[in-house]
């Protein structure tokens, strides 16, 4: 028996919108810890890891660990039927082949339930070891999104370099080149608008902008984004989900042939 009641239902709507273009089908793993997901894109270049901790739900019942395979496009269709202010409850039975999404309007005058078919998904879980990163950049998520969008109109790849000077995003295309440097900026009142650069060593890595732009679909989940970089490791782009957990995207770097 599974019953998860999420008062801020819009969070689930946003999470699915953030990952559905990257991943088609995924197993949602439910345990006492929370609801989690790990899935790779079809080319195995990018990975999304999601955690919604049990404490973040108003009611959380998960009698045994279960893995529920869902088509994210179908899930998105159903969750789009929930209002942004709705409370969403996810219900399932052990061994069942469907899951039910129940939507309650804030004043309880409309209650809907949508039953979705589950699917068997063979998914490979990767072990992601804890790593010491050479540099960790925290910046406003909207700023990161803007940079990725702007640069992708000029080039296909971006070089992200962190030095004492700041974090530099560089691209090159047929029409020319672009460099955007963001310096550390802690002096403003609002911490969400700060850019904070922790650097142990300078690092410079190349990534496909197509994937980074896809990750920025999570921008509305968090005011800030954390970019963790180490040479010869996938970059981690993390959006914290207030009081609940995170959505992390891992992207393998490109290397010179």
């Amino acid at each position: 028996m599974l019953e998860l009641r999420l008062v801020q239902g819009s969070l689930l709507k946003k999470v699915i919108e953030a990952i559905k273009d990257l991943v088609t089908d995924a197993n949602f793993d439910c345990s006492a810890t929370g609801l989690s997901l790990q899935a790779m894109d079809s080319s195995h270049v990018a990975l999304v890891a999601l955690l919604l901790r049990s404490e973040g739900f108003e009611h959380y019942r998960c009698d045994r660990n279960i893995s529920m395979g869902m088509n994210l496009n179908n899930m998105s269709k159903m969750l789009k039927c929930a209002g942004n202010d709705d409370i969403i409850t996810i219900k399932g039975d052990d061994g069942g082949d469907t899951i039910t999404f129940m939507f309650e309007s804030p004043n309880q005058d409309k209650i809907s339930d949508f039953e979705m078919k589950l699917m068997d998904i063979d998914s490979e879980h990767l072990g992601i070891p804890e790593a010491e990163y050479h540099a960790i950049v925290k910046m406003p998520s909207s700023e990161f999104s803007r940079i990725c969008k702007d640069l992708s109109s000029i080039g296909d790849t971006v070089v992200i370099s962190v030095t004492k000077e700041g974090v530099k995003f560089t691209t090159r295309g047929d029409i020319g080149t672009a460099n955007i440097v963001c310096r550390q900026n802690k002096t403003i009142d609002k911490p969400d608008e700060a850019t904070i650069i922790e650097m142990n060593e300078p690092v410079s890595l190349t990534f496909a902008l197509r994937y980074l732009n896809s990750f920025t679909k999570a921008t509305s989940l968090s005011e800030s984004v954390t970019i963790s970089l180490s040479s010869d490791l996938p970059v981690v782009i993390e959006y914290k989900i207030a009081d609940m957990g995170y959505i992390r995207f891992y992207l393998a770097p490109k290397i010179e042939d």
Binding site: L47, E124, L126, G127, A252, K254, I255, D257
Partner: peptide
Amino acid sequence: KPKQQILSRFFAPK
């Protein structure tokens, strides 16, 4: 042109 690497080069299956 730089070559795209895949994740299994960095992370092993669990």
